[in-house]
Computed example of a mutant assay.
Amino acid sequence: MIRQRIITLSWLTLCMLFLPGCWDYQKINDRSQIIAVGVEPTSDNQKMFTYTLQVPVFQQPGQGGTAPGSGGEEPTSNYHNYVISALSFDEAVSKAQTQSDKGLYLGNIQLILYSTKLSHAQFRRITGEFMRNPRFEKLSWVEFTSQPPSEVLAAKTDLTPADSFDRILSSSVKQHGYTVRTHLWEFWRDFWTIGRQPYGGEIQKTPTGFRVDGLVVPVQHNHCMELTPEETLYFNMLCRRVQSISFNVIDGAESFGVGEVKTKSNLSVSMNRGRGRVLRAQIRINAVILRDESDGLVPLNHKDIKRYERVMSDQIKVQVDQIIKKFQHNETDPFGFGETLVTQNPRMAEYVSSRWPHDFAHATTNIQVEVRLKRKGALR
Protein backbone atom coordinates (compact mmCIF):
# COMPACT_ATOMS: atom_id res chain seq x y z
CA MET A 1 0.00 0.00 0.00
CA ILE A 2 2.82 2.41 0.90
CA ARG A 3 4.67 1.54 -2.29
CA GLN A 4 1.52 2.17 -4.34
CA ARG A 5 1.08 5.62 -2.75
CA ILE A 6 4.71 6.50 -3.48
CA ILE A 7 4.27 5.52 -7.12
CA THR A 8 1.05 7.58 -7.37
CA LEU A 9 2.68 10.67 -5.85
CA SER A 10 5.67 10.31 -8.16
CA TRP A 11 3.35 10.11 -11.17
CA LEU A 12 1.43 13.22 -10.09
CA THR A 13 4.68 15.12 -9.56
CA LEU A 14 5.86 14.15 -13.03
CA CYS A 15 2.57 15.30 -14.58
CA MET A 16 2.77 18.66 -12.82
CA LEU A 17 6.19 19.29 -14.31
CA PHE A 18 4.73 19.14 -17.82
CA LEU A 19 1.68 21.32 -17.17
CA PRO A 20 1.64 24.25 -19.67
CA GLY A 21 1.88 27.85 -18.57
CA CYS A 22 4.08 27.32 -15.54
CA TRP A 23 7.28 28.78 -16.95
CA ASP A 24 5.90 31.63 -19.15
CA TYR A 25 3.63 33.13 -16.47
CA GLN A 26 3.48 36.92 -16.54
CA LYS A 27 1.95 38.98 -13.78
CA ILE A 28 -1.03 41.10 -14.80
CA ASN A 29 0.69 44.10 -13.20
CA ASP A 30 3.37 43.86 -15.89
CA ARG A 31 0.83 44.53 -18.65
CA SER A 32 -1.08 47.65 -19.65
CA GLN A 33 -4.08 46.91 -21.85
CA ILE A 34 -5.06 49.46 -24.48
CA ILE A 35 -8.88 49.56 -24.41
CA ALA A 36 -9.59 52.46 -26.82
CA VAL A 37 -7.87 54.11 -29.79
CA GLY A 38 -8.71 57.60 -31.07
CA VAL A 39 -7.46 58.80 -34.47
CA GLU A 40 -7.46 62.34 -35.84
CA PRO A 41 -5.39 64.16 -38.50
CA THR A 42 -2.60 66.55 -37.58
CA SER A 43 -2.74 70.09 -38.90
CA ASP A 44 0.80 70.32 -40.27
CA ASN A 45 1.27 66.92 -41.96
CA GLN A 46 -1.45 65.01 -43.85
CA LYS A 47 0.49 61.75 -43.56
CA MET A 48 0.79 61.98 -39.78
CA PHE A 49 -2.01 61.26 -37.31
CA THR A 50 -2.65 61.95 -33.65
CA TYR A 51 -3.45 58.75 -31.79
CA THR A 52 -5.10 58.65 -28.36
CA LEU A 53 -4.38 55.37 -26.56
CA GLN A 54 -6.50 54.77 -23.48
CA VAL A 55 -5.33 52.33 -20.80
CA PRO A 56 -6.98 51.49 -17.46
CA VAL A 57 -5.15 52.31 -14.24
CA PHE A 58 -5.52 49.78 -11.44
CA GLN A 59 -4.62 51.05 -7.98
CA GLN A 60 -4.51 49.36 -4.62
CA PRO A 61 -7.07 50.44 -1.97
CA GLY A 62 -5.93 53.59 -0.25
CA GLN A 63 -3.26 54.30 -2.85
CA GLY A 64 -2.93 58.00 -3.64
CA GLY A 65 -0.80 59.93 -6.08
CA THR A 66 -1.45 60.86 -9.68
CA ALA A 67 -2.17 59.00 -12.87
CA PRO A 68 0.87 57.59 -14.73
CA GLY A 69 2.41 60.06 -17.13
CA SER A 70 0.38 62.96 -15.76
CA GLY A 71 3.42 64.77 -14.38
CA GLY A 72 1.61 65.46 -11.13
CA GLU A 73 -0.94 67.75 -12.76
CA GLU A 74 -3.93 65.39 -12.91
CA PRO A 75 -5.75 63.82 -9.97
CA THR A 76 -5.80 60.07 -9.60
CA SER A 77 -7.96 58.48 -12.31
CA ASN A 78 -9.00 54.98 -13.30
CA TYR A 79 -7.57 55.48 -16.79
CA HIS A 80 -4.81 57.33 -18.61
CA ASN A 81 -4.69 58.64 -22.19
CA TYR A 82 -1.46 58.65 -24.18
CA VAL A 83 -1.73 61.26 -26.96
CA ILE A 84 0.90 60.46 -29.59
CA SER A 85 1.62 61.91 -33.06
CA ALA A 86 2.96 59.29 -35.47
CA LEU A 87 2.89 58.12 -39.07
CA SER A 88 1.34 54.77 -38.15
CA PHE A 89 -0.44 53.04 -35.29
CA ASP A 90 2.48 50.71 -34.56
CA GLU A 91 4.80 53.70 -34.30
CA ALA A 92 2.37 55.38 -31.88
CA VAL A 93 2.32 52.27 -29.67
CA SER A 94 6.13 52.18 -29.71
CA LYS A 95 6.32 55.83 -28.67
CA ALA A 96 3.74 55.31 -25.93
CA GLN A 97 5.80 52.38 -24.67
CA THR A 98 8.61 54.81 -23.79
CA GLN A 99 6.21 56.47 -21.32
CA SER A 100 5.04 53.27 -19.65
CA ASP A 101 6.89 50.71 -17.53
CA LYS A 102 4.36 48.04 -18.59
CA GLY A 103 4.00 46.13 -21.82
CA LEU A 104 1.19 47.55 -23.98
CA TYR A 105 -1.28 44.84 -24.99
CA LEU A 106 -3.74 45.13 -27.94
CA GLY A 107 -5.96 42.11 -27.42
CA ASN A 108 -8.68 43.91 -25.40
CA ILE A 109 -9.32 47.03 -27.48
CA GLN A 110 -13.02 47.85 -27.18
CA LEU A 111 -13.39 51.05 -29.21
CA ILE A 112 -11.91 52.79 -32.25
CA LEU A 113 -12.92 56.46 -32.38
CA TYR A 114 -12.35 58.18 -35.74
CA SER A 115 -12.42 61.92 -36.31
CA THR A 116 -14.85 62.95 -39.06
CA LYS A 117 -12.10 65.25 -40.37
CA LEU A 118 -10.23 62.27 -41.81
CA SER A 119 -10.50 61.74 -45.56
CA HIS A 120 -11.91 58.63 -47.21
CA ALA A 121 -8.40 57.48 -48.15
CA GLN A 122 -7.17 58.02 -44.59
CA PHE A 123 -10.03 55.94 -43.18
CA ARG A 124 -9.09 53.09 -45.49
CA ARG A 125 -5.38 53.34 -44.75
CA ILE A 126 -5.75 53.37 -40.96
CA THR A 127 -8.38 50.63 -40.90
CA GLY A 128 -6.10 48.51 -43.07
CA GLU A 129 -3.30 48.92 -40.51
CA PHE A 130 -5.60 47.76 -37.72
CA MET A 131 -6.78 44.72 -39.70
CA ARG A 132 -3.26 43.66 -40.69
CA ASN A 133 -2.03 43.79 -37.11
CA PRO A 134 -2.46 40.22 -35.78
CA ARG A 135 -2.62 41.46 -32.17
CA PHE A 136 -5.41 43.99 -32.79
CA GLU A 137 -8.91 43.09 -31.57
CA LYS A 138 -11.07 42.75 -34.70
CA LEU A 139 -14.33 42.96 -32.69
CA SER A 140 -13.63 46.54 -31.59
CA TRP A 141 -16.49 48.98 -32.09
CA VAL A 142 -15.98 51.61 -34.82
CA GLU A 143 -17.40 55.03 -33.90
CA PHE A 144 -16.99 58.59 -35.18
CA THR A 145 -16.89 62.03 -33.62
CA SER A 146 -16.79 65.59 -34.92
CA GLN A 147 -14.88 66.60 -31.77
CA PRO A 148 -11.22 65.76 -31.08
CA PRO A 149 -11.13 62.07 -30.06
CA SER A 150 -8.66 62.94 -27.31
CA GLU A 151 -11.36 65.11 -25.67
CA VAL A 152 -14.16 62.56 -26.12
CA LEU A 153 -12.01 59.83 -24.57
CA ALA A 154 -11.63 62.11 -21.54
CA ALA A 155 -15.40 62.40 -20.94
CA LYS A 156 -16.73 62.27 -17.38
CA THR A 157 -17.86 58.70 -16.71
CA ASP A 158 -18.18 56.42 -13.71
CA LEU A 159 -16.19 53.73 -15.51
CA THR A 160 -13.38 54.35 -17.95
CA PRO A 161 -14.81 56.07 -21.07
CA ALA A 162 -14.07 52.99 -23.21
CA ASP A 163 -15.97 50.73 -20.79
CA SER A 164 -18.93 53.14 -20.69
CA PHE A 165 -19.13 53.30 -24.50
CA ASP A 166 -18.81 49.50 -24.74
CA ARG A 167 -21.64 49.02 -22.24
CA ILE A 168 -24.02 51.09 -24.42
CA LEU A 169 -22.94 49.45 -27.67
CA SER A 170 -22.94 45.89 -26.34
CA SER A 171 -25.90 43.55 -26.53
CA SER A 172 -26.76 44.23 -22.87
CA VAL A 173 -28.58 47.38 -24.07
CA LYS A 174 -31.25 46.24 -26.53
CA GLN A 175 -32.42 49.67 -27.72
CA HIS A 176 -30.18 50.68 -30.62
CA GLY A 177 -32.61 52.45 -32.92
CA TYR A 178 -30.92 55.86 -32.71
CA THR A 179 -27.41 54.60 -33.41
CA VAL A 180 -25.62 51.76 -35.21
CA ARG A 181 -23.13 49.20 -33.99
CA THR A 182 -20.28 48.35 -36.34
CA HIS A 183 -17.34 46.07 -35.59
CA LEU A 184 -13.90 46.70 -37.06
CA TRP A 185 -14.05 43.66 -39.35
CA GLU A 186 -17.47 44.76 -40.65
CA PHE A 187 -16.23 48.29 -41.32
CA TRP A 188 -13.24 46.94 -43.24
CA ARG A 189 -15.39 44.41 -45.13
CA ASP A 190 -17.73 47.16 -46.35
CA PHE A 191 -14.76 49.10 -47.71
CA TRP A 192 -14.15 46.25 -50.18
CA THR A 193 -17.72 45.04 -50.71
CA ILE A 194 -19.02 45.93 -54.15
CA GLY A 195 -22.15 48.06 -53.91
CA ARG A 196 -21.94 49.11 -50.25
CA GLN A 197 -20.24 51.93 -48.34
CA PRO A 198 -18.99 51.51 -44.73
CA TYR A 199 -20.55 53.42 -41.85
CA GLY A 200 -20.49 53.65 -38.05
CA GLY A 201 -22.14 55.34 -35.10
CA GLU A 202 -21.35 58.73 -33.58
CA ILE A 203 -20.16 59.76 -30.12
CA GLN A 204 -20.28 63.29 -28.72
CA LYS A 205 -18.87 64.63 -25.47
CA THR A 206 -21.35 66.59 -23.33
CA PRO A 207 -20.83 68.74 -20.21
CA THR A 208 -22.10 65.90 -18.02
CA GLY A 209 -20.58 62.97 -19.90
CA PHE A 210 -21.26 61.78 -23.44
CA ARG A 211 -23.96 60.89 -25.96
CA VAL A 212 -23.97 57.93 -28.36
CA ASP A 213 -26.37 58.42 -31.28
CA GLY A 214 -26.45 59.22 -34.99
CA LEU A 215 -24.67 57.71 -37.98
CA VAL A 216 -21.60 58.68 -40.02
CA VAL A 217 -20.64 57.56 -43.54
CA PRO A 218 -17.21 58.36 -45.05
CA VAL A 219 -17.68 59.46 -48.67
CA GLN A 220 -15.32 60.09 -51.57
CA HIS A 221 -16.10 63.72 -52.36
CA ASN A 222 -15.91 65.19 -48.87
CA HIS A 223 -15.02 63.99 -45.38
CA CYS A 224 -18.23 62.44 -44.01
CA MET A 225 -22.01 62.47 -44.19
CA GLU A 226 -23.88 62.48 -40.90
CA LEU A 227 -27.42 61.49 -39.94
CA THR A 228 -29.29 62.82 -36.94
CA PRO A 229 -30.53 60.32 -34.34
CA GLU A 230 -34.06 60.54 -35.79
CA GLU A 231 -32.77 59.91 -39.33
CA THR A 232 -30.69 57.02 -38.02
CA LEU A 233 -33.85 55.39 -36.68
CA TYR A 234 -35.37 55.28 -40.17
CA PHE A 235 -32.03 54.17 -41.64
CA ASN A 236 -32.11 51.20 -39.28
CA MET A 237 -35.69 50.41 -40.27
CA LEU A 238 -34.57 50.28 -43.90
CA CYS A 239 -31.44 48.14 -43.81
CA ARG A 240 -31.00 46.83 -40.27
CA ARG A 241 -33.32 45.78 -37.44
CA VAL A 242 -34.90 47.87 -34.71
CA GLN A 243 -35.93 46.30 -31.42
CA SER A 244 -37.27 47.53 -28.09
CA ILE A 245 -37.75 51.20 -28.93
CA SER A 246 -40.57 53.71 -28.41
CA PHE A 247 -41.37 56.92 -30.29
CA ASN A 248 -44.21 59.27 -31.25
CA VAL A 249 -46.03 59.26 -34.58
CA ILE A 250 -47.32 62.61 -35.86
CA ASP A 251 -50.93 62.63 -37.08
CA GLY A 252 -51.68 66.16 -38.20
CA ALA A 253 -52.14 68.28 -35.08
CA GLU A 254 -52.24 65.16 -32.89
CA SER A 255 -49.82 62.33 -32.17
CA PHE A 256 -49.82 58.86 -30.68
CA GLY A 257 -47.08 56.81 -29.08
CA VAL A 258 -45.89 53.32 -29.99
CA GLY A 259 -43.49 51.01 -28.17
CA GLU A 260 -41.90 47.56 -28.29
CA VAL A 261 -41.18 48.32 -31.95
CA LYS A 262 -39.67 45.48 -33.98
CA THR A 263 -38.78 45.78 -37.65
CA LYS A 264 -37.63 43.61 -40.54
CA SER A 265 -36.75 44.69 -44.06
CA ASN A 266 -35.92 43.28 -47.47
CA LEU A 267 -34.07 45.20 -50.20
CA SER A 268 -34.05 44.54 -53.93
CA VAL A 269 -33.27 46.32 -57.20
CA SER A 270 -35.31 46.01 -60.39
CA MET A 271 -35.27 47.54 -63.88
CA ASN A 272 -38.08 49.81 -65.03
CA ARG A 273 -38.10 50.34 -68.78
CA GLY A 274 -37.48 53.96 -69.62
CA ARG A 275 -36.91 54.93 -65.96
CA GLY A 276 -33.71 53.10 -65.07
CA ARG A 277 -33.17 51.22 -61.84
CA VAL A 278 -35.80 51.02 -59.09
CA LEU A 279 -34.72 50.70 -55.45
CA ARG A 280 -37.29 48.54 -53.71
CA ALA A 281 -37.70 48.04 -49.98
CA GLN A 282 -40.28 46.11 -47.99
CA ILE A 283 -40.39 47.08 -44.31
CA ARG A 284 -42.51 45.16 -41.81
CA ILE A 285 -43.15 46.72 -38.40
CA ASN A 286 -44.83 45.30 -35.30
CA ALA A 287 -45.52 47.59 -32.35
CA VAL A 288 -47.80 48.24 -29.39
CA ILE A 289 -49.87 51.40 -28.96
CA LEU A 290 -48.74 52.98 -25.71
CA ARG A 291 -50.66 56.26 -25.97
CA ASP A 292 -53.59 57.10 -28.21
CA GLU A 293 -54.64 60.56 -29.35
CA SER A 294 -57.33 60.85 -26.67
CA ASP A 295 -54.96 59.83 -23.86
CA GLY A 296 -57.19 56.87 -23.08
CA LEU A 297 -60.43 58.84 -22.69
CA VAL A 298 -62.05 57.24 -25.74
CA PRO A 299 -61.67 53.46 -26.33
CA LEU A 300 -59.94 52.54 -29.58
CA ASN A 301 -61.85 50.30 -31.97
CA HIS A 302 -60.61 48.23 -34.90
CA LYS A 303 -61.17 51.10 -37.35
CA ASP A 304 -59.07 53.49 -35.25
CA ILE A 305 -56.18 51.02 -35.06
CA LYS A 306 -56.23 50.54 -38.84
CA ARG A 307 -56.10 54.30 -39.33
CA TYR A 308 -53.12 54.51 -36.95
CA GLU A 309 -51.39 51.84 -39.01
CA ARG A 310 -51.90 53.83 -42.23
CA VAL A 311 -50.67 57.06 -40.63
CA MET A 312 -47.57 55.38 -39.22
CA SER A 313 -46.88 53.61 -42.53
CA ASP A 314 -47.12 56.85 -44.54
CA GLN A 315 -44.85 58.72 -42.13
CA ILE A 316 -42.13 56.05 -42.20
CA LYS A 317 -42.35 55.79 -45.99
CA VAL A 318 -41.76 59.53 -46.39
CA GLN A 319 -38.86 59.59 -43.93
CA VAL A 320 -37.11 56.57 -45.49
CA ASP A 321 -37.49 58.03 -48.98
CA GLN A 322 -35.91 61.32 -47.84
CA ILE A 323 -32.90 59.50 -46.36
CA ILE A 324 -32.33 57.55 -49.58
CA LYS A 325 -32.45 60.77 -51.61
CA LYS A 326 -29.96 62.38 -49.23
CA PHE A 327 -27.39 59.71 -50.05
CA GLN A 328 -28.32 59.65 -53.74
CA HIS A 329 -27.31 63.30 -53.91
CA ASN A 330 -23.77 62.24 -52.88
CA GLU A 331 -23.75 59.05 -55.00
CA THR A 332 -23.16 56.99 -51.85
CA ASP A 333 -24.94 53.71 -51.08
CA PRO A 334 -24.54 52.65 -47.43
CA PHE A 335 -27.80 50.66 -47.59
CA GLY A 336 -26.37 47.86 -49.75
CA PHE A 337 -28.72 48.12 -52.76
CA GLY A 338 -25.74 47.59 -55.06
CA GLU A 339 -24.59 44.59 -53.04
CA THR A 340 -28.10 43.14 -53.31
CA LEU A 341 -27.97 43.57 -57.09
CA VAL A 342 -24.70 41.61 -57.25
CA THR A 343 -26.10 38.92 -54.97
CA GLN A 344 -29.11 38.52 -57.26
CA ASN A 345 -26.91 38.36 -60.36
CA PRO A 346 -23.13 37.87 -59.82
CA ARG A 347 -22.47 38.82 -63.44
CA MET A 348 -23.43 42.39 -62.49
CA ALA A 349 -20.33 42.79 -60.30
CA GLU A 350 -18.31 44.70 -62.89
CA TYR A 351 -21.26 46.96 -63.69
CA VAL A 352 -21.91 47.76 -60.01
CA SER A 353 -18.21 48.36 -59.36
CA SER A 354 -17.90 50.94 -62.14
CA ARG A 355 -21.32 52.49 -62.75
CA TRP A 356 -23.42 51.91 -59.66
CA PRO A 357 -22.71 55.26 -57.89
CA HIS A 358 -24.09 57.16 -60.91
CA ASP A 359 -27.05 54.84 -61.50
CA PHE A 360 -27.87 54.72 -57.79
CA ALA A 361 -28.04 58.53 -57.72
CA HIS A 362 -30.59 58.54 -60.59
CA ALA A 363 -32.67 55.53 -59.51
CA THR A 364 -36.29 55.80 -58.43
CA THR A 365 -37.60 54.37 -55.17
CA ASN A 366 -40.47 52.06 -54.28
CA ILE A 367 -40.88 51.80 -50.51
CA GLN A 368 -43.55 49.54 -49.04
CA VAL A 369 -44.21 49.74 -45.28
CA GLU A 370 -46.49 47.26 -43.53
CA VAL A 371 -47.43 48.17 -39.94
CA ARG A 372 -49.20 45.93 -37.45
CA LEU A 373 -50.27 47.58 -34.19
CA LYS A 374 -51.61 46.01 -31.03
CA ARG A 375 -53.13 47.52 -27.95
CA LYS A 376 -52.73 46.02 -24.49
CA GLY A 377 -55.87 47.71 -23.18
CA ALA A 378 -56.58 50.45 -20.67
CA LEU A 379 -57.21 50.64 -16.93
CA ARG A 380 -60.39 52.30 -15.71
Score class of each variant (00 low, 15 high):
116 T>V: 04
103 G>Q: 15
238 L>T: 06
11 W>N: 03
374 K>W: 11
307 R>H: 13
278 V>C: 05
257 G>H: 05
184 L>D: 03
321 D>R: 07
74 E>I: 14
192 W>D: 13
38 G>F: 03
74 E>A: 14
345 N>Y: 14
246 S>M: 11
343 T>N: 15
118 L>F: 02
178 Y>L: 01
224 C>F: 01
270 S>I: 03
270 S>V: 04
294 S>P: 00
215 L>M: 10
39 V>I: 14
345 N>Q: 15
71 G>K: 14
10 S>W: 12
193 T>F: 11
318 V>F: 06
129 E>W: 14
277 R>K: 11
281 A>R: 00
41 P>V: 14
59 Q>R: 15
61 P>F: 11
60 Q>Y: 06
176 H>K: 13
246 S>E: 11
153 L>I: 05
290 L>T: 02
356 W>F: 07
214 G>W: 07
67 A>L: 12
347 R>K: 11
71 G>C: 10
303 K>Q: 15
275 R>F: 07
251 D>G: 02
225 M>P: 06
265 S>T: 11
284 R>I: 04
39 V>L: 06
271 M>P: 01
282 Q>L: 09
264 K>E: 13
329 H>D: 14
247 F>T: 12
200 G>M: 03
305 I>R: 05
137 E>M: 09
362 H>K: 05
221 H>G: 04
156 K>R: 13
73 E>T: 14
224 C>K: 00
254 E>H: 15
249 V>F: 10
37 V>S: 06
88 S>R: 03
210 F>L: 02
46 Q>M: 04
353 S>G: 03
262 K>M: 02
310 R>P: 00
178 Y>E: 00
234 Y>Q: 04
71 G>R: 12
208 T>Q: 15
377 G>L: 11
105 Y>F: 15
69 G>M: 03
320 V>L: 07
227 L>Q: 05
365 T>E: 09
185 W>Y: 10
296 G>H: 13
351 Y>Q: 01
94 S>H: 12
42 T>L: 10
81 N>W: 06
185 W>R: 02
91 E>L: 14
357 P>N: 06
238 L>I: 02
16 M>I: 13
232 T>A: 10
192 W>M: 07
323 I>N: 12
127 T>Y: 10
158 D>M: 08
283 I>C: 06
325 K>F: 08
283 I>T: 11
75 P>H: 08
40 E>H: 00
155 A>Q: 00
379 L>C: 06
138 K>H: 07
190 D>V: 15
195 G>Q: 05
81 N>K: 09
29 N>F: 09
194 I>L: 12
368 Q>W: 10
157 T>N: 04
51 Y>T: 11
187 F>D: 00
355 R>K: 13
245 I>F: 12
131 M>N: 07
62 G>R: 10
35 I>K: 09
256 F>P: 02
197 Q>P: 01
197 Q>C: 03
340 T>V: 03
338 G>P: 06
140 S>C: 07
166 D>H: 06
147 Q>G: 13
186 E>V: 00
62 G>T: 07
172 S>K: 10
145 T>C: 08
238 L>P: 00
177 G>H: 05
51 Y>P: 09
63 Q>T: 15
12 L>H: 00
207 P>Y: 01
117 K>I: 00
210 F>M: 01
81 N>M: 08
76 T>N: 14
300 L>W: 05
